[in-house]
């Protein structure tokens, strides 16, 4: 895979992550840290996918990134946040199943990553993760 494509892939994943975060936390990620953390999670998942699936997802992400080119003259990662949100919505409501599934996959994974950041410690037992030995009276 060429360096240019790899850069596009990484930018697309970052933009997707930022968009998913913005959808769930409008205006809530001023420092951009949540978006970065979700992007890192998506990249880590991609790196671990079965070896016959990861090239497929790689190509799908590139197609997704290039899809606004014809209509808007820009890659997804170059769009404004508002345009990215509506692009995501277009894919979500598309009649083509693979487009819907793509957004569902990255959307749900992104939200899982985001909510793990935000609320991973909701459950007091897990603040001392399932592990720390219980102390008795």
């Amino acid at each position: 895979m060429s360096k240019v494509m790899l850069r596009h892939f990484e930018r697309a994943i970052s933009a997707l992550a930022e968009t998913v975060v913005a959808e769930r936390q409008p205006g809530g990620d001023t420092s951009g840290m949540l978006g970065k953390s979700v992007a890192q999670f998506l990249m880590s998942v991609h790196a671990r996918m079965p070896d016959y699936l990861s090239p497929l997802f790689y190509v799908l992400v590139l197609i997704f990134n290039a899809s606004p080119l014809l209509r808007k003259g820009k890659f997804f990662h170059q769009l404004s946040l508002g345009d990215r949100l509506s692009e995501l919505d277009t894919w979500r409501r598309s009649r083509i199943e693979v487009r819907r599934r793509f957004v569902e996959f990255y959307g749900s994974l992104g939200v899982f990553g985001l909510y793990s950041d935000l609320y991973g410690t909701d459950y007091t037992h897990d603040q001392l993760p399932t592990g720390k030995r219980a102390q008795s009276r």
């Binding site: 037992h125 001392l128 399932t130 720390k132 030995r133 219980a134 102390q135 008795s136 009276r137």
Partner: peptide, 12 residues
């Protein structure tokens, strides 16, 4: 854990 005061509820 019996008589739990703090910590996780036991050990998996």
């Amino acid at each position: 854990a019996t008589d739990l005061v703090t910590g996780s509820p036991g050990r998996k």
